[in-house]
């Protein structure tokens, strides 16, 4: 077997199984199936070209995600689009809204998270600003480590933790809204400290 054949087989074994994870991430980021497909295809072609430089024994998935990120950034630059600018007030509002509550967390968890529909969770993730959606998907869906995510977003690990924390809070609030719409008696007090007792 030639070196080229060996490389091809190794690539098939190591890299190709992550196509689903890459496509999912690309789709969540671009919100466009065609663009996501192009991005993943470009990622794989680049990955194969540089596969000999992939450090064996490290996480191939994280390596592929880094290539995808670079392709994503390049595409945004080419089309003069930029990542979303986070509305700080909106984030802060979410952040402040979950500080105090009278209901046990376990009850909240049962009412909001366990009963949330998959479509609602997906929509809530989609509604997150880019920076927060990225860390949620990479950490909680794709199981990358904090170190790998930090390298991906090019920020310190503390930033990863901080963004993740806030992203989960935003999701909690959004899912509470969905729960209230479906008739669960989730009080605004469970998530807000300013307007006591009002129903969402």
């Amino acid at each position: 077997m030639s070196d080229e054949d060996r490389l091809r087989q190794e690539f098939e074994r190591e890299a190709v199984p992550h196509m689903g994870a890459l496509y999912n991430f690309a789709l969540r980021m671009t919100r466009d199936p065609d663009e996501a497909a192009d991005l993943v295809q470009e990622t794989y072609l680049k990955a194969y070209r540089f596969f000999s430089s992939f450090e064996r024994g490290t996480n191939c998935k994280a390596w592929l995600f880094r290539i995808l990120k670079n392709s994503y950034i390049n595409r945004y630059r080419k089309t003069s689009k930029g990542p979303d600018v986070v509305e700080y007030d909106v984030v802060e509002e979410f952040f402040e809204s979950v500080r105090s509550s009278e209901i046990e967390t376990s009850v909240l968890e049962e009412q909001i998270f366990d009963n949330a529909l998959d479509d609602e969770v997906t929509a809530a993730i989609q509604d997150l600003p880019d920076e927060f959606r990225t860390v949620i998907i990479l950490c909680d869906i794709e199981e990358l480590t904090y170190e790998e995510i930090a390298e991906f977003i090019d920020c310190p690990i503390g930033t990863v933790r901080s963004r993740l924390h806030r992203a989960r809070k935003m999701l909690a609030v959004r899912l509470a809204e969905y729960a209230a719409k479906r008739g669960f008696s989730v009080s605004k007090r469970d998530f807000e400290s300013t307007e006591e007792g009002a129903e969402i």
């Binding site: 967390t105 924390h165 899912l175």
Partner: peptide, 23 residues
Amino acid sequence: VPDEMPMGNEREQQIDDAVARML
């Protein structure tokens, strides 16, 4: 958004954990 923010209280952490478990 500034990158570093305080992590908040214990209840926030519980909600954080619950969301992570659910996802």
